[in-house]
Design a protein around this nucleic acid. Structure first.
Length: 449
DNA sequence: TCTGGGGTCCTTTTCCTT
DNA sequence: TCTGAAGGAAAAGGACCC
């Protein structure tokens, strides 16, 4: 929430008004605001969102500068050509590998999607999440690189270290973005946050060679939108009273949390822009979107968001899943499926043990040939982290799911995580009282499919 | 013709206990 | 033993994000 300062009062007075599409009321209301934020007036909250520019592609271009400007596609998962050229050119600088040596999209066969595509590739109509085979028809000459998460994580750690060295309150939001609380950082509110943002951009560029965009606003919701305004290498400051001018003209989809489904529903109701959304009475939104979602939509449209910057969090679940090269059938491909299933359990177990967690809820995920998804899970009395126990429980789940249709994906998940030290304490205590008793699982060796 | 993998959070339904 | 209500936990599905 934009607590304290005039903004909260301002938005309240606005939301109580009856808005009309003409905007007359909006203009009138904006005069009520009177909120000015001079450089010397600290706000109760000044939150930044930092987003690395075209992160994966930029990291690849640091290694392979010779590919700059060429249509470049990263993706394909494990099936992407694992660069044999890295071995062939071992010992030589990567930048010396001739462009002609790189694998081309047209030579790729099999499943997989594009994780990211450079601007030069996008010009051919290629975009993230597109199937690689389709992309190959649109731009066969594009260079295809495998996703190298280890390398992206390495750069991710680098830029986050820089951020933390300048502002200690940072929320990790994935490999390429963070929220940062500028409020109490010395100089963090100078020029609305622009000074610190500029310093941060420079320090990150020095440390990594990469550029980023930063948005600074009174809360996370607005900061996230602001960081999109001037990409790449942008800095955008959104003040409380910029809501109408900068936020309301945007499509609803620009709100973090409104995805394709919500957008379609909003459009069907005649709501295109955030201004349209803000103009709908709160009660009307509650009626059409339910209590929780409706209230959130209303708050978001009015730029209100009181979520704190969360610097530490515990994982809730860990999972592994895989899409097969071809659709498999439970009966005809029983052995292959069994082997994949066991491997997934072992991978999750290894992840849990490496990170020091155990979990009580074991689940499976199946995706059928028609892309429909089914999940099943079971909650055990006590947390586990070993492959055999996970496989045992996951095998139980497997018995509760239809297996007539061919499968394209299989996954294993462990949830309700606790730190393994705490798990030991739970084991010593014995089963939790009041937990629902489930039938005991079959032996580990029981056939799965 | 296609549509990855690893997460979080929320809602609805189902199941169990009292 | 059956029935029904209520509350809570677990299960299932879905939306969304990076």
């Amino acid at each position: 929430m934009l607590e304290g300062a005039g903004f909260a009062d301002w938005s309240l007075s606005l939301s109580q008004g009856c808005l009309c599409r003409s905007g007359q009321r909006l203009v009138a209301a904006s005069t009520i605001a009177g909120v000015t934020d001079s450089a010397e007036t600290p706000l109760p909250r000044r939150i930044a969102h930092l987003d690395m520019d075209a992160f994966y592609a930029s990291v690849e271009l640091l290694r392979y500068p010779q590919l700059k400007g060429l249509p470049l596609v990263i993706g394909g998962g494990r099936r992407a050509p694992d660069n044999a050229l890295l071995q062939r050119y071992a010992g030589q600088p990567l930048s010396a590998i001739p462009v002609a040596e790189f694998p081309l999209l047209k030579d790729y066969t099999g499943r997989g999607v594009i994780t990211t595509a450079t601007y030069a590739a996008r010009q051919f109509g290629i975009g993230s999440a597109m199937g690689l085979m389709k992309a190959a028809r649109l731009c066969p000459q594009a260079i295809l690189l495998p996703v190298d998460f280890a390398e992206y994580r390495r750069y991710s750690r680098l830029f986050k270290e820089v951020v933390l060295s300048m502002a200690p309150l940072m929320e990790d939001r994935g490999v390429d973005e963070v929220y940062i609380d500028f409020t109490d950082v010395p100089g963090g509110q100078r020029q609305g946050g622009r000074s610190l943002a500029r310093l941060m951009q420079g320090a990150i560029a020095d440390a990594t060679g990469l550029s980023c965009s930063i948005g600074v606003a009174p809360n996370k919701l607005l900061a996230k939108m602001a960081s999109e305004f001037n990409k790449p290498q942008g800095i955008s400051i959104v003040q409380a009273d910029d809501l109408q001018a900068l936020i309301w003209p945007l499509a609803c989809r620009k709100i973090n949390g409104i995805g394709p489904k919500s957008e379609a529903k909003l459009q069907a109701l005649g709501i295109e822009t955030i201004a349209d959304l803000a103009a709908r009475p709160r009660a009307w939104l509650l009626q059409h979107f339910g209590k929780s979602h409706g209230a959130w939509l209303h708050e978001a449209a009015w730029g209100r968001d009181d979520r704190p910057v969360v610097t530490e969090s515990e994982p809730v679940s860990m999972s592994r899943e895989t899409t097969f090269e071809r659709d498999l059938h439970a009966r005809e491909d029983r052995e292959e499926l069994g082997a994949v299933f066991t491997a997934l359990c072992e991978q999750v177990a290894a992840d849990l043990q490496r990170k020091g967690y155990s979990g009580r809820t074991i689940g499976i995920k199946l995706r059928y040939a028609d892309f429909k998804t089914a999940t099943r899970d079971i909650t055990l009395e006590l947390p586990v982290a070993d492959a055999a126990a996970i496989r045992l429980a996951a095998g139980q789940c497997l018995k509760r799911v239809p297996l007539a249709q061919r499968l394209r994906l299989l996954g294993v998940r462990v949830g309700a995580l606790v730190r393994s030290g705490d798990a030991q304490a739970l084991l010593a205590q014995g089963p939790r009282p009041g937990t629902r008793q489930r039938p005991v699982a079959d032996p580990y060796t029981a056939p799965l499919f």
